[in-house]
Simulated assay, not measured.
Amino acid sequence: MTDIGGGTAMSTGRVEAFSDGVFAIAITLLVLEIRLPEEPRSHAHLWEALWGLWPSYLAYVVTFLLIGMIWMNHHRMFNHIRRVDGMLLALNLLLLMDVAFLPFPTHVLAEAITAGEGASAAAVFYGAILVIGGLFFNGLWWYASSRHRHLGDGITPAEARALRIRWGVGPLLYLVATAVGVFSAIASLCLYVFLLAFYFFDMRPRTSGA
């Protein structure tokens, strides 16, 4: 626990609890964006309508797992953070703002692919939100780990630098996937699936005692 600004104390536990709540709400709101385009007139029409929603299912799964991956790495990050100050809170809030916004570009992308119009623009918009979120995530870790100012004894300066490099690659890869979205929204989503497979692995450096 540490003093924030005017002397109000806050623990990392409170920051994590608030962050977890935002992640949970954002990941739940995704499913609310999946809607039938019109009321089915028959059993056959219902199956046709459900099948026609495949872009929404795909966008939902990819974004659900992306938010889950961000949450996992956010949890790993705060395993090492032991002190909180105003700047760290602000950076964490910016990251959460981006996460909470993700259901909207997810809906835009799914609707564009379904309509067959504007899919490239929607894919670029979706990717841009992920790039911005990646920058906020890395800004949070860079600030916390710079000069080891907010980290505990469970991670060495060398390990913190290694994480800065590994996590720092994320926004660059998101940017590549965003650029691909200019030509193909589906190809862009496939790249995000690849990034999920990459980042779902434990990115923490192994200590000599591990």
Rank of each mutant, 00 (worst) to 15 (best):
R14P: 09
R14E: 06
R14C: 03
R14L: 03
V15L: 07
V15N: 02
E16P: 00
A17N: 10
A17G: 04
A17E: 11
A17L: 11
F18Q: 09
F18H: 14
F18M: 12
F18N: 10
F18S: 08
S19H: 02
S19I: 02
S19R: 02
S19Q: 00
D20K: 03
D20V: 00
D20M: 07
G21V: 03
G21I: 03
G21S: 02
G21D: 00
V22N: 01
V22W: 08
V22Q: 02
F23K: 00
F23E: 02
F23A: 03
F23H: 09
A24H: 02
A24M: 01
I25Q: 02
I27R: 01
I27D: 01
I27M: 04
I27T: 01
I27V: 06
I27Q: 00
I27G: 00
I27P: 00
T28R: 02
T28N: 03
L29V: 11
L29F: 09
L29A: 03
L29Y: 10
L30A: 06
L30E: 00
L30H: 07
L30Y: 08
L30Q: 06
L30V: 05
L30C: 00
V31K: 07
V31F: 07
V31Q: 05
V31D: 04
V31L: 09
L32V: 08
L32Q: 06
E33N: 12
E33M: 10
E33F: 07
I34M: 08
I34Y: 06
I34L: 12
R35I: 11
R35Y: 10
R35K: 15
R35A: 13
R35V: 13
L36A: 08
L36K: 03
L36R: 03
L36H: 04
P37Q: 06
P37R: 14
P37A: 10
P37L: 13
E38F: 11
E38I: 07
E38T: 11
E38K: 13
E39Y: 09
E39W: 12
E39D: 07
E39S: 12
P40M: 07
P40F: 10
R41I: 12
R41H: 12
R41K: 14
R41P: 13
R41M: 11
R41S: 15
S42L: 06
S42E: 08
S42I: 07
H43E: 14
H43I: 15
H43L: 11
A44F: 13
H45Y: 11
H45A: 11
H45K: 12
H45T: 11
L46E: 01
L46F: 05
L46D: 00
L46Q: 01
W47A: 14
W47D: 13
W47E: 10
E48Y: 10
E48T: 14
E48I: 10
A49N: 12
A49D: 09
A49P: 08
L50G: 07
W51Q: 12
W51V: 15
W51P: 08
W51A: 15
